[in-house]
Simulated assay, not measured.
Amino acid sequence: MTLSVVQRISCEVIDNEAPKARIFNIQRYSLNDGQGIRTVVFFKGCPHYCPWCANPESISGKIETVRRLSKCLQCAPCQNDVDECPSGAMEQIGRDVSLSELEKEVLKDDVFFRASGGGVTLSGGEVLMQAEFATRFLKRMKSLGLRTAIETAGDASPDKFLAVAQQCDEVLFDLKIMNAEKAKNVLNLHQPRVLYNFRMLVENGIKVIPRVPLIPGYTLNQSNMQAIIDFLVPLKLNEIHLLPFHQYGEPKYQLLGKPWRMACVTPPNEADISPLRQMAEQAGYHVTIGG
């Protein structure tokens, strides 16, 4: 009898176990993070300070503890302990997983991957901050015949980035503020390195899908979009994803006790997005809104 992928994994010993990764969520059945049905692993830690970040719990690389007031019983005294909390109001954000532990978690969804042509996507935070683990994990997934992808801002050592990207069927690569000085001051992003890395992946034959977050006051303007198109045209890619700003992350800021600097910003509507979509389409790109 042929063993399933999960059964085979449980029978194998994984040699040279890599250091553990720190993650904060595993999202199953995603349709927006690569081809087919995806399981998305969110890595903790990010070097950037995007004001619009929808995952503020991803920014710190530390394991954090929060209290959900809606569940809190106002125990006195509060132990501030996740394991001791009787109502589950105390919640830990972040945990460390080994290579084998994460493989077993992801491969629970193997049947959905194979039925839909989907696979696993590593996101964050910034997955490139844990590049060694990511490279080994993705290599293992590919050896089992699964499709692999990462979501990244691309601001990392080229050597480390290329090692990760070579284990991917596609790289979902965010292009944000194109002005280098503004990108550094607002986002702590080294834009020249980002653009170098983008070109490097394309030149190495890796499938790269550019994604543009459309953020009022930052990237939702024709000059930034034109700069992105001017950069992309020589690379001869055929698709681009536009990601409109939303307010879904606001409750997370409240939970973490952090200010939400985009609270008064209205998400863009079709009239706001349409000119940028038309610019990309006129340049020859297939445009996906979201993705």
Score class of each variant (00 low, 15 high):
174 D>E: 04
76 A>N: 12
102 L>Y: 03
123 S>E: 02
211 R>I: 03
189 L>I: 11
162 L>K: 06
143 S>L: 08
213 P>A: 10
248 Y>I: 15
164 V>T: 04
96 D>M: 12
163 A>H: 01
60 S>T: 12
55 N>V: 11
188 N>Q: 10
88 G>C: 09
42 F>M: 11
174 D>M: 09
271 A>L: 10
270 E>F: 09
48 H>Y: 07
265 V>R: 00
117 G>N: 07
37 I>K: 11
61 G>P: 01
93 I>F: 06
205 G>A: 00
202 V>D: 03
143 S>F: 06
224 N>D: 07
269 N>L: 14
116 S>K: 01
108 K>H: 13
258 K>M: 14
110 D>E: 15
238 N>V: 09
226 Q>R: 05
175 L>M: 08
163 A>W: 04
252 K>C: 13
40 V>P: 05
68 R>Y: 08
156 A>Q: 09
52 W>F: 04
222 Q>H: 03
267 P>R: 10
157 S>W: 00
90 M>L: 15
219 T>C: 09
262 M>Q: 03
245 F>N: 14
80 N>E: 15
116 S>R: 10
262 M>D: 03
194 V>K: 08
159 D>R: 14
171 V>R: 06
46 C>I: 03
167 Q>T: 10
291 G>A: 13
29 Y>W: 13
228 I>G: 10
267 P>Y: 01
190 H>L: 14
1 M>G: 14
222 Q>G: 07
189 L>Y: 10
192 P>V: 14
260 W>R: 13
222 Q>A: 07
70 S>L: 00
5 V>D: 07
102 L>N: 02
270 E>K: 12
23 I>T: 00
8 R>E: 09
250 E>V: 10
29 Y>M: 14
282 Q>T: 15
141 M>T: 06
248 Y>V: 15
109 D>P: 02
19 P>G: 06
177 I>V: 15
117 G>A: 13
122 L>W: 01
58 S>E: 00
130 Q>N: 03
39 T>M: 06
233 V>Y: 00
201 L>V: 07
104 K>E: 11
265 V>F: 05
91 E>D: 03
69 L>M: 11
134 A>P: 02
285 Y>M: 12
192 P>D: 14
192 P>I: 12
8 R>M: 05
281 E>C: 14
192 P>S: 10
153 A>M: 04
86 P>E: 12
251 P>R: 14
285 Y>V: 11
176 K>I: 05
244 P>T: 01
248 Y>N: 11
241 H>W: 06
238 N>T: 10
175 L>T: 04
277 R>T: 15
75 C>R: 02
36 G>N: 11
192 P>W: 04
56 P>H: 07
228 I>T: 05
220 L>P: 04
111 V>G: 08
277 R>K: 15
124 G>D: 01
76 A>M: 14
77 P>D: 02
287 V>H: 11
127 V>N: 02
132 E>W: 06
120 V>C: 15
267 P>T: 00
178 M>K: 08
96 D>L: 15
165 A>E: 01
131 A>V: 00
157 S>T: 04
68 R>I: 02
223 S>D: 12
54 A>F: 03
66 V>H: 02
17 E>D: 00
145 G>S: 07
243 L>I: 08
129 M>I: 03
158 P>E: 15
80 N>D: 10
59 I>M: 03
97 V>R: 12
48 H>C: 04
254 Q>N: 09
239 E>F: 01
